[in-house]
């Protein structure tokens, strides 16, 4: 077991973690460490190769990887240490108020890090087919939009050729366009609610410009296909989201992408015993972004799902500052 001591441990090296680390360093904290579970910094931005990022933060329009790169460059320049391929398995509170972060990676094996503060920046995950409770068969060809985005944008591989998308969140809309550009046919986007949850510009640029129909008040009633998806039954729904009998129609497809909401990933937060907010899915925080556990801060999508990464960066910057302030106060 390798051990080390830090002032601030940041869990997650995506946009939130990077911005928090930079502001903490700027505010004068030397001992900052980022723990990232993936093989590179940048988080989900790395697979968001479309543009539209950074209008607030940098006053120019960037792609996801470009936006991430700016922060990664700044972090490198500030010589902020980080560990990649490192999974945090537990955070616990010591009796003296300091925290113990347990993690592991291939190089160091098990790691135990004692720290004054922790900044939670783990992001979120997508709601799965099971959680959506869509009936039908369980063949290959059902992916969350983000998983499909990873295959296409990072691995250069197509997860399907003939696609129906359920959910008109921004990832779903962006993936409708991406799948078309990479050679697939997108049959339609179905949205349970009476309006799309995505940004207007995404509806125009990703659906309208490609003549992809958006069916509102519509959901998938059944998935068909034994080995691979062969089609879905769509159905109109009433004001309560309940299927309207007789309104069903079949759409042949080999792929169903799901973009039906994001869930802050708070397994570690719950394990730590922090109070949770049932509405946001994140921890309850005060104005200084501190959880019910003193010295534990949260920012970005782990706190609540943000529409724009620019807002994540701004929030995370504050979290970094507040963490430094906490350390200062504690040490008088």
């Amino acid at each position: 077991m390798s051990k080390r001591t830090e002032d601030i441990v940041i869990i997650g090296g995506g946009p939130a973690g990077l911005a928090a680390a930079l502001s903490a360093r700027k505010a004068g904290c030397e001992k900052v460490l980022i723990l990232e579970r993936d093989r590179e910094l940048g988080g989900i931005l790395n697979q968001c190769i479309h543009n539209g990022f950074g209008l607030h933060t940098f006053k120019e329009e960037l792609t996801g990887p470009e936006y991430a790169e700016r922060y990664i460059d700044m972090a490198e320049e500030a010589k902020i240490p980080y560990m990649l391929n490192t999974m945090v398995t537990n955070i616990s509170l010591r009796s003296d108020g300091r925290k113990k972060v347990t993690a592991m990676n291939k190089e160091d094996g098990l790691l135990e890090i004692e720290t004054e503060t922790v900044i939670l920046a783990m992001g979120c995950r997508e709601r799965s087919r099971g959680a959506l409770n869509i009936p039908g068969s369980r063949p290959a060809g059902i992916y969350s939009a983000g998983t499909a985005q990873y295959y296409v944008n990072i691995r250069g591989r197509m997860p399907g050729k003939n696609v129906v998308i359920l959910g008109s969140g921004d990832i779903g809309l962006i993936m409708a366009r991406r799948m078309v550009l990479e050679g697939a046919k997108v049959q339609c986007v179905a949205e349970l609610r009476p309006q799309s949850g995505g940004l207007k510009r995404n509806i125009v640029q990703c659906l309208d410009d490609f003549n992809i129909p958006l069916y509102l008040n519509t959901t998938v009633a059944q998935i068909h296909g034994r080995d691979r998806v062969e089609g879905v039954t769509l159905t109109k729904v009433d004001d309560n989201g309940k299927p309207i009998p007789g309104s069903e129609w079949e759409v042949p497809c080999d792929t169903l992408l799901l973009s039906c909401g994001l869930i802050p990933e708070n397994e570690l937060t719950r394990g730590l015993g922090a109070d949770m907010d049932g509405k946001t899915g994140g921890p309850v925080v005060g104005e200084n972004l501190e959880c019910s556990i003193p010295g534990v801060f949260a920012c970005g999508n782990v706190l609540h799902v943000h529409e724009l990464v620019d807002h994540v960066s701004a929030e995370a910057e504050k979290a970094g500052n507040y963490a430094v302030e906490y350390i200062r106060q504690k040490r008088g």
Partner: peptide
């Protein structure tokens, strides 16, 4: 997976 990107023309 069903193929590589751009195996086929858009749409």
């Amino acid at each position: 997976l069903t193929g590589k990107n751009k195996d086929t023309a858009p749409g």
